[in-house]
Nucleic acid binder design. Structure first.
Ligand SMILES: [Mn+2]
Ligand SMILES: [Mn+2]
Ligand SMILES: [Mn+2]
Ligand SMILES: [Mn+2]
Lengths: 226, 226
DNA sequence: CTTCCGGTTTAGCCTAGCCTAATTCACCGT
DNA sequence: ACGGTGAATTAGGCTAGGCTAAACCGGAAG
């Protein structure tokens, strides 16, 4: 049976697979979930016998089709609740993660679909991450790139964050950056891969962004509005 | 620490205390929660050492002030979520109990209060039950009585149900009864304490209600609208 | 005052998850 | 081919929460 804990494990594996191709290590799961590697190994045995992961000792884990579907459903609920909390209840984007982490475990297709409809079938959550459809496929995803890959002179609209941790989001708040913000890339500093930008519509002339920041911001070409 | 399970126990005790004065029996708790009496006894020891109940073997349990406050907070969240599900997401009143039973365990005063504000600080949930305030007090409660205590000739507006089980609510649906329905008491049958009523605005001339039904409906005097 | 009986409690066991400590293994460099 | 080393696994233990079966009251009836 799906429990809160197994859902968290499956979701973690899904998100780690996104980066690391295949063969997620038990220690990376442990780190992401704040658990001990030994606990993860134990859980992998259970997930395997339930048919949700492919696992062989010392060889890492992969989701099965069933496991991936469960994980996607959890991600869907997580992002819908985040959208609700920010869009409907008025929370800030750095306040909703922990709440959604709990709400995502209320499993009810009726509830999820009604919520989705009430929100108007949003494409992305408050952090710019795409919300899966009920069937587990992703909604139209625009081609986007990391700000760290942008060239000088480009006008980039921020459309997503690579890290939804509260402290990163609050850092962005204090820099004056948010979803929809448009920045013009002024200068690149190869030494530490940091970047100077101008925030269009902002008060400061220039703003300096560390590589830790630029590597966690997604952007698309800004279109001057009509 | 408050867990989902302890919250369910505290809530059950609160609701059983409402009827039985003081000294709730372990078996009544067991029945309400669908658990074994032995399990309840075990949990009572834990609740006692956490200071949430007064308990002495063979003498039943009562909530302490702290225990009562926790229970009230859970009831508050339960009823707010029910109101949200029916009023905002469009669920029927017989579909929301099990969902609220899960949602009520997401503990966050911010979330609860924001939800309350979004809903416009409702007085009652979709079953007519009063929603506690954040401080644990009840909101303005109208004087109401059980339909089984109504006299012939009275025009009664249904304002609450004593039993929120799905099957009872569906039975009311099939009778054409709901919150706000006005009925005129036509005849009482002392033999089985059943009652014949006319549903104001309904299609049928008369409707026969068993005592099982009339003892679970709350009413107030119907005021003819202007 | 004694006996019964049904509700209550205890005793013992189980599963899910998690932890620490000890062990094992894969892989890399020599 | 051979160790070393650090990651991964196993072993063993803990808590929460449940269940069954057996033992244990307390109050009602004789
Ligand atoms: Mn979670
Ligand atoms: Mn998000
Ligand atoms: Mn509950
Ligand atoms: Mn209710």
């Amino acid at each position: 049976m799906l429990t809160e804990s197994t859902e968290n494990y499956l979701k973690a594996i899904l998100q780690l697979e996104a980066d690391k191709a295949d063969g997620v290590s038990t220690s990376s799961i442990a780190e992401r979930l704040g658990a001990q590697p030994a606990s993860v190994t134990g859980m992998m045995h259970k997930l395997k016998e339930r048919g949700w992961v492919k696992y062989e000792r010392y060889k890492g884990v992969d989701l099965t089709e069933t496991g991936r579907r469960h994980a996607m459903e959890t991600v869907r609920r997580h992002r819908l609740w985040e959208t609700f909390l920010v869009g409907t209840l008025g929370f800030a984007w750095d306040e909703v993660h922990d709440l959604a982490e709990q709400l995502e475990h209320v499993r009810s297709t009726d509830l999820t679909d009604q919520l989705d409809a009430f929100l108007g079938h949003p494409q992305t959550d408050p952090h710019g991450d795409p919300i899966p459809n009920a069937d587990g496929t992703f909604r139209t995803s625009v081609g986007r790139a990391l700000l760290s890959d942008a060239q000088v002179g480009i006008c980039a609209k921020i459309v997503g964050v690579g890290d939804s941790q509260d402290d990163f989001l609050r850092h962005l708040n204090s820099l004056g950056l948010g979803l929809g913000t448009v920045v013009e890339v002024k200068e690149l500093f190869p030494f530490d891969r940091s970047m100077a930008v101008h925030i269009v519509g902002g008060v400061e002339a220039r703003c300096h962004l560390s590589s830790r920041v630029t590597q966690n911001l997604w952007w698309v070409e800004a279109v001057p509005d009509a």
